[in-house]
Write a protein that binds this DNA or RNA. Structure first.
Lengths: 198, 198, 198, 198
DNA sequence: AATGAATGAGCTTTCATTCAT
DNA sequence: GATGAATGAAAGCTCATTCAT
């Protein structure tokens, strides 16, 4: 097993254990065991357990960023770009349940308290999203609400339905995802002019 | 101190400690200390620590149910009843940050995995909400989506903005709450007939 | 076993193990074992292992102080008082080999680096000795050398012969102790006037 | 780097680390690192860590012996030879603080327990000193005390003042060293006949 | 000969739970 | 009923030593 392989094996093992059992269920001895290495070996690849956990988190943020960026319709209307991001996000989550559950654990633990601010979005991605929302606000396409509320109305439900799908409370399909993402857009979309108000 | 008082004191102490410091910061010795009883005493009132934690959860669900039920406009239109529930929910959360943070801890821990199914709503309350949504579906007032998705589109954002308010990412006021609850309704509301479709 | 007994048992066990084997040979598990308690019990009596070690050190300093103070001939000539201190010090050390070896370990370890300044003498005792030496210097009874050098010339050899006795390189008896203590006095004693110089 | 160079580098690195930080601060990985070799390489030159430590000790004893032997006034009076040894010893110690501190660590650790018997003097040097003392005893120049006591009265203080100088409790100069060494001689010197007693 | 990744026993400390008082 | 001292398993981490390369 090569150096990189072992690092990957440790990340994979920790990801699985935390995803499956939570942080309480992922002591270093077990992580090492599942990765097929000795406990002490972890400390050749990571400064300490926290560092391993944070490393996974960082890697996942990058994955999400990548997933959302693929085929991003840079030059299409705001609405289309929003729908793209929503679709890709849900797509990533439901195709990566371990990763999703890890992130849920992470953001609700001492580890994640500090980076909660960044929520599910790393710097680069946040900028992508933030830019999108700010453009939408500028053009008066969406309601003039604080960004955190706009995020809550859009990404909150998408995360929730992803979790529900993974926990099998609901079975998503393309149509349902599309309708939900569109409903999220509907939640923040600015009511059209006079006619629609009537 | 009466029997019930001690039970209450233990629940309150555990609630505070978990809310303030997370589960890691709430060992039984500390809970007992803050409750003004001996460590061993906990085991007269609860089978074990898990049981205490679950007891708190149950108590909080009841509190939420009560909060939502107060002044519930039983005979008003579905939309009004929905807005009432949303408003009360957010009101309860932001006026009970300890309770809110406890629940967040709870649902993201081994304790909560089992009861996640119940989400933020206990049996009775679920029925209240479920009845509301089913009536809305029957009358074709909202989109024909699976209940979990409807919940995600409505309660998801409300929980998120409550968290953001408690963490001071945003400062809610009555107007913002109202707009957000209405936006949630907008997300699931059935587009009106022919005109809106055009 | 009473509370105090257990504390004493832990101190005794740690004292023995450190004295016999050095700090490396005194892991908490072994200390607890020899004291007849569980490992965790140590932490009811001491904040941590360091605290236990420091507690022993403090207790021993007090013991030494007490030993030296008993029958201290407050109103006798400086020379008599010096001889008293020397005799008592050696007497304490060779009758308390475990304590002696513990202290040797202590002063040569990370634990003792900070308190090295105090050397074998706690505050009160240092003052007793310091006062004695200062009086002797004032009266021009001893050579005008820096205090550390005076200490080295007097207590250095006394500690060394105590160690040698404990390690059985030499077998001390009252006469030998007396002669050595007097030799130490001889080392710092001011040469008498003109005659002695010739 | 030649074979011998690596051995020397390892000894030097270990000497520095132990001298600076104590045994706790000198794990093999760090020693190897500072010596510019791989951790495993140590085991080509020494059986194990203990062996390396003992190797340093042996080297230092040789150094001390050499230092004391230089300019040794073989044909001068016993007193002069004694003063020479004392001076050279202190001179070596205060000009080699790392070496001094290593030896202090060594003699107070599991490593040194076995070789304590040899004290600061290896075989050859012991013989030099022992011969000196035996000659002095034969000629009735010093008090008829056991050798360990004579050593304690003479080398004990010299080691102590060297330590105090290194720790900056006192600042030695040639005069102070001379006076102290002479005081040591005074401690063991046989009182001169009737006249001096008067 | 030399490397350095890997090992795993051993360390100190925490804490849910028990039980004699 | 209530206490809180005692327990001991389990945690994260270190480091002397080995061995495939």
């Amino acid at each position: 097993m090569k150096r990189t392989d072992k690092r990957e094996a440790l990340i994979q093992a920790a990801l699985e254990l935390v995803g499956e059992r939570g942080f309480h269920g992922a002591p270093v001895a077990l992580i090492a065991d599942r990765a097929g290495v000795a406990a002490g070996t972890i400390y050749r690849y990571f400064d300490n357990k926290d560092s391993l956990i944070k490393g996974i988190h960082a890697a996942l943020e990058q994955q999400i960023l990548d997933a959302v960026t693929v085929d991003y319709p840079e030059n299409q209307p705001v609405r289309d770009r929003f729908l793209h991001v929503g679709r890709k996000l849900v797509g990533y989550f439901i195709s990566s349940p371990l990763q999703f559950r890890f992130l849920e654990q992470y953001y609700n633990s001492p580890y994640g308290v500090a980076s909660r601010r960044a929520k599910l979005f790393g710097k680069k991605k946040k900028n992508l999203i933030v830019r999108l929302f700010e453009e939408a606000l500028d053009r008066k396409l969406i309601k003039p609400l604080p960004l955190p509320i706009l995020f809550a109305l859009t990404f909150g439900p998408l995360i929730d339905i992803s979790r529900d799908h993974i926990l099998e409370f609901v079975t998503l399909n393309e149509r349902l995802i599309e309708e939900t993402v569109e409903a999220c857009w509907g939640a923040i979309q600015r009511p059209r002019a006079v006619d629609a108000q009537r």
